[in-house]
Amino acid sequence: MERESVLKIEFKPVWDKWAWKITKQNEEILRRNEFIDKELNVESFRSPEFYTIQDKLFIRGSSKKEDEDIQFCTSEEKELIEEKVRAINEKYGIKKRWRAEKSGKQLIKYAEIHKIKIENEIRYIAKMYIEREEIEDESFSSPTFEETAKHVLKDCVISSYVDMTEMEE
């Protein structure tokens, strides 16, 4: 699933170096002066910086006045920084809700949840639709409504719930 970036860094060439600065940092996820990811070697400390020897990227931290400061790096360092930003966004990025597009307009993906009884077992079946066409390969089944709804809500709007067990009685 596609994710919304939580960290963006913009680079501009300056002679034989690169100028860079953070243009986006989601502070709800990458909290100032608190965020540390030892695996990726990224930390929020004082201000944005890259330490080549430690291969460590510092993002916005306690010194807000330094948020807009421009940093400089080599082409090799730029590649390392870009890889860290990519890894942060893969690990911490916010999942985007899926929207189908058809001839310039967006279509919403809907789901119907049906409660059924199969051999004395209650199951919740989710059927996904775009407009009125069912998407066969995306149907989902679970023994609990909560699990089914959680799965469906990642990508869809629940349009209806049908209790088929009441109809059987």
Results as ranks from 00 to 15, higher is better:
Val6Glu: 06
Thr148Tyr: 00
Leu107Lys: 15
Ile125Cys: 05
Val42Leu: 05
Ile53Met: 06
Ser139Ile: 10
Asp16Arg: 15
Glu77Ala: 08
Tyr51Cys: 11
Ile158Asp: 07
Pro48Asn: 06
Thr74Tyr: 13
Ala126Asn: 06
Tyr51Gly: 06
Ala19Pro: 00
Pro143Asn: 14
Glu82Leu: 05
Pro13Ala: 10
His151Val: 00
Glu138His: 06
Thr165Asp: 07
Phe145Ala: 00
Glu76Asp: 14
Ser63Asn: 14
Val157Gly: 00
Lys127Leu: 11
Lys115Ile: 06
Glu112Asn: 11
Ile81Pro: 00
Thr52Lys: 11
Lys91His: 12
Lys95Cys: 01
Lys64Asn: 09
Lys96Pro: 01
Lys78Glu: 01
Glu138Val: 04
Lys64Ile: 07
Ser75Gln: 07
Ile70Met: 04
Ile88Ala: 10
Ala87Leu: 15
Thr144Glu: 09
Phe35Tyr: 12
Ile125Asp: 07
Glu39Tyr: 09
Glu138Phe: 10
Arg123His: 15
Ser139Phe: 13
Ser47Gln: 15
Glu27Thr: 13
Ser5Asp: 14
Glu83Leu: 08
Val162Thr: 15
Asn33Ile: 00
Cys73Asn: 06
Ile108Asn: 10
Gln71Pro: 04
Ile130Lys: 05
Ser142Asp: 14
Ser141Ile: 15
Val152Gln: 01
Arg46Gly: 15
Glu77Val: 06
Tyr129Asn: 02
Asp37Arg: 01
Pro13Val: 11
Glu83Pro: 00
Lys91Asp: 13
Trp20His: 00
His151Cys: 08
Glu68Ala: 12
Glu146Arg: 05
Glu49Cys: 08
Glu68Cys: 02
Glu131Leu: 04
Lys65Arg: 12
Gln106Glu: 12
Thr52Ile: 01
Ile130Gly: 02
Arg97Phe: 09
Ser139Asp: 15
Phe72Met: 10
Lys102Trp: 07
Ala100Ile: 03
Ile22Pro: 03
Ser141Glu: 15
Cys73Gln: 10
Arg31Gly: 05
Glu27Ala: 04
Leu7Met: 00
Met1Pro: 07
Arg99Leu: 14
Lys21His: 12
Asn41Ile: 03
Ser141Gly: 13
Tyr161Ser: 07
Tyr51Arg: 07
Gln25Ser: 12
Phe45His: 15
Glu131Gly: 04
Glu4Trp: 03
Gly61Cys: 11
Lys65Asn: 13
Asn89Phe: 10
Thr144Pro: 11
Arg97Ala: 08
Trp98Gln: 10
Arg31Asn: 10
Ile22Gln: 06
Leu57Gly: 04
Thr144His: 12
Glu34Asn: 11
Leu153Cys: 12
Glu101Tyr: 09
Tyr124Gly: 00
Phe58Trp: 05
Tyr110Ser: 06
